[in-house]
């Protein structure tokens, strides 16, 4: 039997079952839903506190989080994000599914091969995306997977809105027929 880790891809259903099972594990062991974007907010909050110590008094953010019992810290959520990086790194090394290209083929076909353009867009889009995730207090993992599996109304609405916005944006950028690369 070949080692499944050396394969480049698994069935999406197997992966979905795995993520569902991992949610049980997270709830059972840490009493916490799987999530990614909270750790980014905590990192930013720690950086803000380090750079501007007076912010802890002037910005009600810090008092509010402490009051909710969620002080900014390097915790479980932060280690999950570090783990995602390590897990994907190991998985891609085992299978040889590595890519160091800055401009995805589909993007190049539509917007040209400029690395600067792609990286600028990725930076600004990452910024906007994370700002949105924190406005809604969750992202694809915290809302669309963990929130929906808890049958949360906020997560259902967030998922519907972000999918609609992403579909409209993608169709406007790439067209219904899309690139030959999809």
């Amino acid at each position: 039997m070949t080692n499944p880790l050396t394969r480049k891809s698994w069935s999406p259903y197997v992966v979905g079952i795995g993520i569902g099972g991992l949610s049980w594990f997270a709830f059972a062991t840490a009493d916490h839903p799987l999530g990614v974007s909270t750790a980014f907010e905590q990192t930013a909050a720690l950086a803000e506190k380090a750079a501007m110590p007076q912010a802890e008094q002037t910005n009600e953010y810090f008092a509010k989080k402490a009051q909710e019992g969620k002080p900014t810290k390097i915790g479980w959520e932060w280690m999950v994000v570090l783990g995602v990086f390590i897990g994907a790194l190991l998985s891609s090394l085992f299978s040889g599914d590595r890519s160091t290209e800055a401009v995805p083929a589909m993007w190049r076909e539509r917007f040209g091969g400029s690395v600067i353009l792609r990286l600028t867009a990725a930076f600004l889009a990452g910024l906007l995306m994370m700002f949105g995730a924190r406005l809604a207090s969750g992202c694809t993992s915290g809302h669309a997977i963990s929130g929906n599996l808890q049958l949360a109304v906020s997560s259902l609405v967030f998922t519907a809105v972000f999918f609609a916005a992403a579909i409209i944006t993608s169709l406007a950028l790439y067209g219904r027929r899309g690139s030959s690369h999809v």
Binding site: M129, S141, A160
Partner: peptide, 27 residues
């Protein structure tokens, strides 16, 4: 939030979790 998230994700091509995973792939 959903609006910003959807537009951002469509331009970036990854969500927060998969973006971190794509860093692991070397992108």
């Amino acid at each position: 939030g959903g609006l910003c998230f959807g537009v951002g994700m469509a331009v970036y091509g990854y969500c927060p979790g998969t973006g971190v995973a794509a860093c692991g792939e070397g992108k």
